[in-house]
Amino acid sequence: MTAHPGLIVTRGGRTARITIGVIIMAALLLAATPAVLGIGASGRAVALLVYILLAVMWNALAGFAGLVSIGQTLFFGMAAYTTIRFADAGLDPYLAILLSIALGALLGWIVSLFMLSLSGGEFAIGMWVLSSLAHLSVNLDPLIKGETGTSLISLNAYDIATRSALTLWLALAITLVVFVTLVALLRSKTGAAITAIRDDEIGARSIGVDVMRTKRVVFVLAATGTAAAGALWLASATNFQPRAFFGIQWTAYMLFMVLVGGLGRIEGAIIGAVLFFLIETYFGAFGAWYVIGLGLVAVLFALLLPKGLWGWIGPRLPGEAIPTGYLVEKSRS
């Protein structure tokens, strides 16, 4: 980039360095969970990572590409199902998980070929139709036996302490890889296109941004990350019941995390996921009332604070916490 006289262009800074420190600390803490807090806590740690994955991916889709999908359970459920299938065929369960994530990316690419020409509500429910179709088809599989489901039995090859630690470390590694990929993508040339589309799709098109290609990149990444979340959730829960993976409640959770945290900001999605994790831990036992509360809060945020919590916190910080844009200052000289 050529320097412009009188202007200083930076990205990052002190806020970003602190954020990186916080993220590394959090990752180290999570990695130490099995040794420090035991098996039960590592299960919860996997749940937290799955929520973060789901929120960051749904936010990338809705916030950056402008695509609200209420059927991301397509990738979540299918990844769990293919993991079961691969494991049943004799593959090591952890290899099965990795293979399922790759298949999720492939499925995302295939789906993007026709779904991305829909927009707004048509895309939103269209994805749900696909998810429902996948759910019904999985139910037909004799291994799954309708809603009875089955388990990832081959995990028993590892003793319980080993497998809970392995699952957590795998979840942590995958979450970090997905996170770094997303940030790198947003800082690249494609990222500039994504931000342009987020701010004004028609305007972006008019200055030569390939909107379809850019949306496809985000969509496939979101499909991959959501598939990873599904496979990890299965590794943690071990039981596969189709309804528990394809159910619409997952969409409600993603919506809550992203709307409360802040649509269009990675920091917001992470905050939303952590908040959701805490709320679920303390109020999850209230059943339907708990879901009603989540829905109400999400609607109120959509109407009153559409930029979410990060929309309030972000501007009050010096610089960006996760720097994806540029800061332009006038130089003093």
Partner: peptide, 19 residues
């Protein structure tokens, strides 16, 4: 607030109503 918010808001309402 753009074309996303009506979708998000009505989806939230459906979740609240169902439960």
């Amino acid at each position: 607030g753009g074309e996303l918010l009506p979708l998000l808001a009505t989806f939230g309402i459906s979740i609240v109503l169902d439960n």
